[in-house]
Amino acid sequence: MPERSEIHLIEAAIDGDIESFGELCRRYYAAMVAVGYAVLSDHQLAEDAAQESFARALVRIKSLKERAKFAQWLAAICRNVAKDIIATRAKQIRTEDISQVDEVENHDENDRAIRRAIEQLPESAKDLVVLRYYDGLSYEQISSILGISKASINGRLTRAKRKMADYLRKNGFPESRL
C-alpha cells in the first residue's frame, strides 16, 4: 500500500480519523522524543513527554489552522509538556535524587561531558543538536519541526558544535578526541 502523504493524514485526523492520527504519531515519535530530550536530558522522561504531547495534540488538532506547520506545532506542544514535567519534578524530587539517577545510568565520563556541553547551549541550538544527533533527522525534517530554513540549519549547527567544543576544551576534554 502506498504511504499516505502527511497532509492527507493531517486532514484525515482533523476529520476524526484516529488511525491517521496514530500514523502521524508513529512518524513523529522519535523526533518528539528528541525534542523532549533536549529539554529533559532523560530518555524515559522524553518518551513520556512525547506520548503526553500526542494526547494534548489529539484534543487540539481540530483547531490546527496551518496544516503545513503540523510538525512545528507538535514540537511546540512537546516542548511545553517537557517543561511541565520539569516543573512537576522540581516539586517532587530533590537535586540529590536526580544525581543518583544519573549515576545509576552509568554513562562514561566522555558522554557526560558531551551532554553537559549540550546542556549549556541556548535552547534553540540545543533542539537542533539533539534532533540532528538523537534521531539522525534530515535537514528537511528538522526544518519542518523547528520552522527554520535548511540553509540556516547548517550554519546554526556548525556554530552550536563550535560552542560545544569550546566548552569541552575549557573543561579539560582531551583535544585529541574532538
Binding site: 515519535y29 544527533y133 534521531d135 560545544m164
Partner: peptide, 10 residues
C-alpha cells in the same frame, strides 16, 4: 555527540 545523547530509535 550521537553516542552521548543517542540510543536506539524509540
Amino acid at each position: 555527540i550521537a553516542r552521548a545523547i543517542g540510543r536506539d530509535r524509540p
